[in-house]
């Protein structure tokens, strides 16, 4: 078994999702290589070399990879994949974007969003918004896998792997970066936050989310939202927690004015402790909450902020 993991990073730092993916890889075998693809990504490569359980870090550092274009990333990984039994990436927006291109180019199926490794060819993954868990077995020669990071612990970072540069450059030249608008926030990222405060349609409008931000700042938390709040235009989509948004599993998830549609529960029900604040005592969110408070959020949230 030789396993290739594709790192998630922003060139300077390594994203936590990489650590969970390495843990999944280590369950398949002990020969794990990590690929860092980027542009001026020395910082990320250095951090990658410290991950325990990684034998070798491969670095492809080139301007062609600066915006993680799926076409370029996909062909590089496809070329490297032949020496490996498994290729894994975290199921982030980058991993979801390029990995199926790798699978199709290799003429193999992809196993998306695994939450458990049963054996070298058998994996568990959620289907139907997490309302069912399928155990699937792959008969392909190379297993192309995306990893749901909440299913695996983070690998330790006390290793010292060798770093090897790749001079291979794949530039398809059919897509180009135009611009990006990334949310600037001092708060932690949703997928790595220990505490998340989320708002739903009950928040009424986007301005009211500032109440949640104040609570979040006292708790060192990230702020999330339900799809209903995103659809209503209260907040941007990158805050969405749920089946089609981000999958999170923090220590504490505080759901405010969220009714608890199955699509939302799919994204947060693995949180360790769930708190629900909703004035409708029949709201389904209370069925998964460890602590429920039936109250008007416009009274309860400021009160909560004062008491923290």
């Amino acid at each position: 078994m030789r396993i290739l993991v594709i790192a998630e990073h922003d060139n300077v730092t390594l994203k936590g999702a990489t650590l969970n993916t390495v843990t999944a890889a280590a369950q398949l075998g002990d020969d794990v290589d990590l690929l860092v693809v980027g542009d001026n990504c020395g910082g990320a490569a250095e951090a990658a070399a410290k991950i325990s359980g990684v034998s070798k870090v491969l670095v492809a550092d080139n301007a062609a990879y600066s915006h993680k274009l799926a076409e370029n990333l996909g062909s590089l990984v496809t070329e490297l994949a032949s020496g490996y039994s498994h290729v894994l990436a975290p199921a982030t927006s980058t991993g979801k974007n390029f990995m199926p291109r790798v699978a199709a180019a290799l003429d193999v199926a992809q196993i998306s969003d695994i939450i458990a490794v049963e054996s070298a060819d058998t994996f568990k993954r959620p289907i139907y918004a997490g309302n069912a868990i399928a155990t699937v077995q792959s008969s392909d020669s190379v297993k192309v896998i995306t990893v749901r990071t909440t299913g695996f612990d983070a690998a330790a970072t006390d290793g010292s792997a060798a770093v090897e540069s790749l001079d291979k450059v794949t530039d398809a030249g059919i897509s180009a970066f135009v611009k990006e608008e990334l949310a600037q926030s001092d708060r932690p990222e949703l997928t790595s936050a220990k505490v998340i405060v989320s708002g739903g349609r009950g928040m009424g409008n986007g301005e009211n989310f500032s109440m949640l931000e104040q609570v979040a700042d006292k708790l060192g938390a990230a702020v999330g939202a339900s799809r209903a709040a995103v659809d209503a235009g209260f907040v941007p989509n990158d805050m969405q927690v749920g089946q089609t948004g981000k999958i999170v599993a923090p220590e504490l998830y505080i759901a405010v004015g969220i009714s608890g549609a199955i699509q939302h529960l799919a994204g947060m029900k693995d949180s360790k402790v769930i708190v629900a604040i909703n004035k409708d005592e029949e709201a389904p969110i209370f069925q998964v909450a460890d602590y429920g408070l039936v109250a008007d959020l416009f009274d309860a949230v400021p009160e909560l902020e004062r008491q923290l």
Binding site: S139, F286, Y291, Q307
Partner: peptide, 30 residues
Amino acid sequence: PRLKTLKVEPPAERQAGIIVGSVDELVEKL
């Protein structure tokens, strides 16, 4: 098919917890 579904099972059920009476009680429990 390249993938064979061996088994489909329901996810682990989460037990509903308790309803607290006030923000004070909520903070105390947390």
